[in-house]
Design a protein around this nucleic acid. Sequence first.
DNA 1: GCCATGGCTAGTA
DNA 2: GCCATGGCTAGTA
Length: 107
Amino acid sequence: MQSAFTRKTIDAILSIPWGKVSTYGDVAAMAGNRRGARQVARVLHSCSRTEGLPWHRVVNREGRISLDPMQGGDLQKRLLIDEGVEFNRSGRIDLALYGWFRAPAIP
DNA sequence: GCCATGGCTAGTA
DNA sequence: GCCATGGCTAGTA
C-alpha cells in the first residue's frame, strides 16, 4: 500500500513525455509537496522497476544527472540522448528547451 | 536511518 | 559545502 503522495509522485513521473525531462523538485510539486524532492528520489530508487517508470527523465535542478555514473548515470545519459535530449560540454541539459513543468505556481 | 534534493552562505578570484 | 527537509522502512523491549 502506497501513500497518496507516493501514488501521485508515480503518476507525475509517468506523465513526463518522451524527449522531455523534469526535476525532482518539480515532480514533488506536481505530487503536491514542494519540499518532497527527496521522496521523489526514494520513489525512483524503489519503484522504477515495479512501476515501469521513465526514471531517466528526472534530473536535478541544474539540469544535471544526479545518479552516479557507475550506478546508472551513464545509462540515464544514454537513454536521454536516444530520445534526442542534448547535453552541453559541461554535461548539462537546457531546461528551457527540454524541461517539462506542470507544477502549480504556488501550492 | 535512508535517499538519484535544494537553497543559501562563506570564501575565493 | 553545509544542513533542513519528509515519507517510508527495518527492526525492535
